[in-house]
Design a protein around this nucleic acid. Structure first.
Lengths: 340, 340
DNA sequence: ATAATGCGTTTAAGCGATTAACCTGAACCG
DNA sequence: CGGTTCAGGTTAATCGCTTAAACGCATTAT
């Protein structure tokens, strides 16, 4: 099998402790002569030695690995590319902090077991993308596992989070439509346990009210993912006084809507405007291209990983809550309100 | 911190060995009375004990974790949803085999270091999605790290792989277009180091030849990802005798093509047919919807994980090479060849 | 001359599990 | 009654690495 530190020590004619010191370059702590140092490095090269990460971690040091824990049910179900961009961002950010990434994707019978599993020593901390009221978050905090939320917030104020200002995003989308003259605006909302979805919805509702429009309850339909039942939506679109614009909480739901609308003979944007959320790359490639609220995914991921790394190291230099401003990317799917 | 096996042993009034035997239920090896067993379990519950995975793995047992190793440069850059579906498939398959997933995403200075890092004890094996001629594959085999390829093949015949019959996929796409009357068929190819892309290209070329059409070299343009330069493609499309159909090696490249074609005033499918590959969900939601070759992603992932698990356990019951037949999903983007 | 200091390295005690080998007392047996 | 058998444990080595403390030995300070 793989060479051990003992073999390296033997070959270099020193003790394993010396090898360890040289390999970890614990400057200041212990002095090692240049000669010994060279002998050890030579032995390392010759044997193709690479320290066993398990033993190293067990001996009290860090794992240099963090877990990414998503909501099991919804993991990798979005096809619009948001998850890919998220992963891309998280991977890069972790890499920049010299951290490996472990995907924690088991569906545990109970949340307690899941929390315990995350404390089994394999990771230094966890990056969470979970429900607003997820008990796992509280358990991890209680258990002392370093934790940070990304792309979501928690009711637990002790947990650092990094996310988009989703309420502002919801406002931007809705204001954009109002400015185009729309007043009958529908909302396709996400899960009511997701802080992001809830915030976007709040932004939508507040903006309507601020503009003297009373939100109609039946015009907010929950479509947690693009494969969810769509009857309720189509019923509204088929109504006599149907909405002239729709703000969807995610791009894939918006694209589903566009496809279904087309089937129903509704033209976008002539008959109905559509605005999505995330502004993923696919928005540029549909016909019509999709107006969407953009969140700075790499930035949010980077800040999340930074906060997690700080907690792991016991520091807390930087801000503990980061909210990144979104931007509205106007494309072809939103246009002036049709005159009747 | 977290409770250790010693604390459990103390509380139950037994030795740590006994606790270990009970927890691992090593029937036959050692007999433990029901009474002792119960005391131990009670202590476990009361302390909220969860064994340290690091120590357990170090003591000679398995990690129950596998690495997923992608090509660093291209990781999570596809936005069509292929990567999401891939991750979804791999996660589910790993879960079914009771394996955790570690994302190996560091860009190592040299492949040797990367191989060594994969042998540092943290994972039992590696699931690879790499270039056809990637030296990492050979190094891992040499090093004895259990390995399986997914969605790709290797020049190294010793490595088990699970992938789509990409050549057949290329043939299906091309034959479909020929049957529609097209004879001037262009191909947007993927990286020439990816086995999948190469196979698809071969399928395209062979089918042309089999139908008495000599492939024009300038009509195969390499577009490794949807963000790659597109000038060469547009030049062909702007030529006097331009192709009436294009087979793209991936959905996102096909969608890019559709968008650019539209900008250039070329209608799809009236003026030009387009066929993609992967048949991701987004194909149903574009306008026109995208004809595409579908590969059974969950199946390929499952088989890959199965083979890896077998190698880890030292078995090799099942087949060591799995090639899954693709299916052509005909949608709106492909139509009869326009008459001149 | 004695004590203090530095240097380069080793010793040895963990980290938290697993597991082969050994131990003990009671039951059984001819 | 000496010896075997078996249930029900325990002991101690081990996995590969880290690190505080000790250890010679040569200098230097007092």
């Amino acid at each position: 099998m793989a060479a051990t530190i003992r073999e390296v020590a033997q070959r270099a004619g020193v003790s394993t402790a010396t090898v360890s010191y040289v390999l970890n370059d614990r400057k200041g702590a212990v002095k090692i002569s240049d000669d010994t140092r060279a002998r050890i490095w030579r032995a390392v090269k010759e044997l193709g030695y690479h320290p066993n990460a398990l033993a190293r971690a067990l001996a009290g040091k860090r794992t240099h690995t963090v877990a990414l824990v998503m909501q099991f049910a919804s993991i990798f179900t979005s096809w619009s590319g948001f998850t890919s961009e998220l992963m891309h961002g998280v991977v890069r950010a972790a890499f920049a902090h010299d951290l490996d990434l472990m995907l924690h994707t088991r569906d545990h019978a109970n949340t307690h077991a899941e929390a315990l599993a995350l404390g089994d020593g394999r990771v230094d901390g966890a990056l969470l993308l979970r429900d607003w009221d997820d008990p796992l978050i509280d358990l991890l905090v209680e258990q002392g596992t370093p934790t940070a939320l990304v792309f979501s917030r928690s009711r637990n104020p002790d947990v650092p989070f990094s996310c988009c200002d989703d309420e502002l995003g919801g406002r931007m989308a809705t204001e954009h439509l109002i400015r185009l003259g729309h007043r009958r605006i529908m909302h396709l909302a996400g899960s009511d346990r997701s802080s992001a979805a809830l915030d976007r919805r709040r932004g939508y509702e507040e903006t309507l009210k601020a503009n003297g429009i009373e939100p109609r309850p039946e015009w907010t339909v929950i479509v947690p993912h693009s494969g969810a039942p769509f009857d309720a939506v189509m019923e509204v679109l088929g109504g006599v006084e149907r909405p002239t614009a729709v703000f969807a909480w995610s791009d894939d739901v918006a694209l589903r809507l566009m496809a279904e609308a087309r089937n129903a003979g509704i033209r976008v944007p002539e008959d109905m405007s559509v605005v999505g959320f995330d502004s993923t790359e696919v928005c540029n490639h549909t016909h019509p291209s999709l107006t969407s609220v953009s969140q700075d995914i790499p930035r949010i991921a980077t800040e999340g990983v930074r906060m997690l790394a700080e907690r792991i190291e016991g520091r807390s230099d930087g801000p503990r809550h980061v909210t990144v401003e979104p931007e509205l990317h106007i494309r072809e799917s939103s246009g002036p309100c049709p005159q009747r």
